[in-house]
């Protein structure tokens, strides 16, 4: 195991995060804070409690999850796209590093960045809601870490698949943002017509938000065990796909 190599990738990626903290840390936190102000504090006052939780609190897990997964995705995809674009991928391809070590270094760095942002957003939410209660803290961490890892793996796939900056930006804006919004950040999917409820269940983000919401309040749209299973399956699928990509050299070796 080339542990030094793995940590080198990790540190290099983390340094990239902190090189432009305005872009990588402050801007996602600011965006989420705006959601709290608009949907939580302003609009939320007019909305009745959902399953016994005030609306302001209700949206917290969803907002954390959305920040977590979009940032894991963008950190990982840019982390692998950039070396491909400028050619420095030769460094890790020609080094005595296994595919696992390359993937792990990038994934752990992207997941760490996402979790740091998630933690900051949680603190910001306390500032707005004046309520720090988390019913099942350990589970909250498990759901967050697993989601961060799965979307980091997913981001690596996108970053390798993308052969232009346009394609790199395509997934977050065209797929992830809509899926997050439809994943139940601002509502319970029980509130949807039953047809749309069924459609929602193919959206992996539903399980992530639902899982974290259950960890926070003990209420959720989907059974937490189902949530956990679905996230684990999603992580596994992304892991298999990225392993295949590295094994075949798809779009990374010629």
């Amino acid at each position: 195991m080339n542990l030094i190599g793995l940590t080198t990738i990790y540190k290099k990626e983390m340094a990239r995060t902190f090189r432009v903290p305005g872009q990588t840390l402050i801007s996602p936190v600011l965006t989420t804070a705006l959601y709290f102000i608009v949907f939580g504090s302003a609009v939320g006052r007019a909305i009745p409690e959902l399953s016994g939780v005030s609306y302001e609190l209700y949206i917290v897990p969803g907002l954390i999850m959305m920040a977590l997964l979009t940032n894991a995705l963008s950190a990982a995809s840019s982390g692998i796209y950039f070396p491909k674009f400028i050619g420095t991928k030769y460094e890790f391809l020609s080094a005595p590093l296994s595919h696992f070590e390359i993937i792990a270094g990038h994934t752990l760095a992207a997941a760490s960045r996402a979790l740091i942002i998630g933690a900051i957003i949680y603190c910001v939410s306390i500032f707005f809601t004046r309520d720090a209660t988390v019913a099942h803290p350990i589970l909250a961490i498990v759901f967050s870490v697993l989601t961060a890892i799965s979307f980091s793996l997913f981001g690596l796939i996108i970053g390798i698949w993308a052969d232009s900056f346009e394609k790199l930006a395509l997934f977050p804006t065209l797929i992830i943002t809509p899926l997050s919004f439809l994943g139940g950040i601002f509502y319970s999917i029980d509130m949807l017509p039953s047809f749309w409820q069924k459609i929602s269940l193919i959206n992996p983000i539903v399980y992530m938000i639902s899982g974290l919401r259950w960890s926070f309040f003990g209420i959720s749209d989907v059974d937490p065990i189902v949530s956990f299973t679905m996230i684990a399956l999603f992580t596994f699928a992304c892991g298999m796909l990225i392993a295949w990509i590295f094994r075949t050299g798809y779009r990374i070796k010629s």
Partner: peptide
């Protein structure tokens, strides 16, 4: 390599240090 494959934002020292790290040394 033939092309100048370098990360423009890193310093010379960082570039060389990372290179050695990737080799696992």
């Amino acid at each position: 390599p033939q092309e100048l494959y370098l990360d423009p934002f890193l310093t010379v020292t960082q570039t060389l240090t990372i290179a050695r790290g990737l080799y696992g040394k």
